[in-house]
Write a protein that binds this DNA or RNA. Structure first.
Lengths: 270, 270
DNA sequence: CGATCTGTTGACTGTTATCAACTCCGGTGG
DNA sequence: CCACCGGAGTTGATAACAGTCAACAGATCG
């Protein structure tokens, strides 16, 4: 799977929103971890649990889900490098079920380490605060998304967000990535019915904005998708958002050439 | 207006979610403030602004509004004692427009004071963290509300939340309080159209759950309203939520007796 | 006392949920 | 090897819900 050490994932994520020194990175390298694997839709931590370590996502996708089974609202989605439960450093109690959206690899990191890190370096302390508040900002943006946009735009916006967050930690370089969602999960995230989610995806495909087959998404027209979704990445608080946006309008030129042939067959790799 | 000193509002709010000592309260009493007044729908701080003080709400209601004019989504509502922009201690930039929902009184408190307070007392530091994360928890709950509940339930839920948060800081003792919302604001908070907001309110009135006239709300049947909304106050992280819930089913017995007469005339006071 | 904001109503339209059926796929066990 | 199964995706028909438009009533405020 070639994921390097756990701390590099965290360092990469922190660096996307804050400035870390080499010493800070060295400190993070001493992070004690317990690596765990979870299957798709397994509950990593149940709602209300008291915890004394945080969960650093290394591979795959996690989500916060309000009610455990099936159709409970998904309130946020997390990509590798995220620490979804960082706020448990202050509050301990989990506000919802932390659930795997696909097979995932996570590293449990003791609260104590984060407290040490925060005392050792003001920059790390600040970066961790930013990481926690960036989740708040995402949540606030998601309220806007649910409250003001029609379902087609909602889904487009979510796809844009996931893509950019992946690119911010060095993934999805070619605008192709494993989908965090089954269509039912997408519905649970966007507050629509699974049937409608299906029709929305079909519409996005029909418009040539993306391919979405067997758990792989390829964004064919980033600018079209972002325009449809009215996507503005400011709320992600990335230090250099432009580094992660496609450079020109020929977003996925290679992919488009590849798929100019008979039909779509280029969705295997990651 | 009889509001006491600014710090007592903050102390009351902090005490609702965390344990403060007398020394902590004394420290808070030394809080330097600049008192300001804003008119209804005035912008207290515009989106994107960099600030070096926080805004403690003393009287009235504030909200975060995504886009300035008219129909921009309201992402959260704040009651007296709240510090909506507490996270600017870490990030400075405002994530949305901070707007008055009615004539308000606020106290601007320098970031420096909060930093001092946090160094001076671990309890204060913890309480401030909780205050900030409680806003996150509200936001997460609001995503659930928008994503999973029908509009009638959404509005009912929001009314329950506001009522309980007011009671947690000693207001709305009789389940009657000034509404934070015009019907248009309510629509902007709940992601529905203003016309529909009007019809929802009528339905809530028709069911005998509340009175809502000229900016005053009186909850006539708390249990009915909470049941309709599927309201569970856990997400507010109150230390003693039961203290703020009505004791028995005869929620507003006095008010109900009053309004058993010809028509509703008992909504003036606060 | 007119201007403006807020609340209210009716008619119509469009979006989305729901229900039900069916396909496709991968895995599992006979 | 094949039958079966469950999960995921797809489709069509129908009904409920909510948005839009337009007009007007009532309140509030200069």
């Amino acid at each position: 799977m070639q994921m390097g050490f756990a701390f590099t994932k965290l360092a990469s994520r922190l660096s996307s929103i804050a400035d870390l020194s080499d010493e800070d990175i060295e400190f993070l390298a001493r992070m004690p971890t317990i690596i765990s694997h979870f299957g798709s839709h397994e509950t990593v931590m149940p709602k209300g649990e008291r915890v004394s370590s945080c969960c650093l996502l290394l591979h795959g996708y996690l989500c916060w889900r309000d009610t455990e089974h099936g159709a409970g609202q998904i309130t946020s989605v997390h990509v590798p490098g995220d620490v979804p439960d960082l706020h448990t450093l202050q509050t301990q109690r989990l506000p919802a079920h932390l659930q795997a959206l696909c097979p995932v690899v996570v590293a449990f990191v003791p609260h104590a380490f984060f407290h040490q890190a925060a005392s050792a370096s003001l920059r790390i302390s600040h970066a961790l605060s930013l990481l926690a508040f960036a989740d708040s900002a995402c949540l606030r943006n998601w309220v806007v998304n649910l409250g003001t946009r029609a379902s087609l735009q909602r889904v487009a916006h979510l796809v844009c967000e996931i893509a950019l967050r992946l690119r911010a930690v060095g993934l999805a370089k070619d605008m192709r990535f494993a989908s965090p969602f089954t269509q039912s999960d997408l519905a649970a995230a966007c507050g629509i019915s699974p049937v409608h989610a299906n029709r929305i995806i079909q519409e996005l495909r029909r418009r040539g904005l993306l391919q979405w087959q067997s758990r792989m998404i390829a964004i064919m027209d980033w600018h079209g998708l972002a325009a449809l979704a009215d996507f503005n990445p400011d709320y992600l608080w990335l230090r250099h958002p432009r580094d992660f946006l496609p450079a020109t309008t020929d977003t996925v030129r290679n992919t488009q050439q590849a798929t100019a042939r008979p039909s779509a067959v280029s969705l295997e790799a990651h």
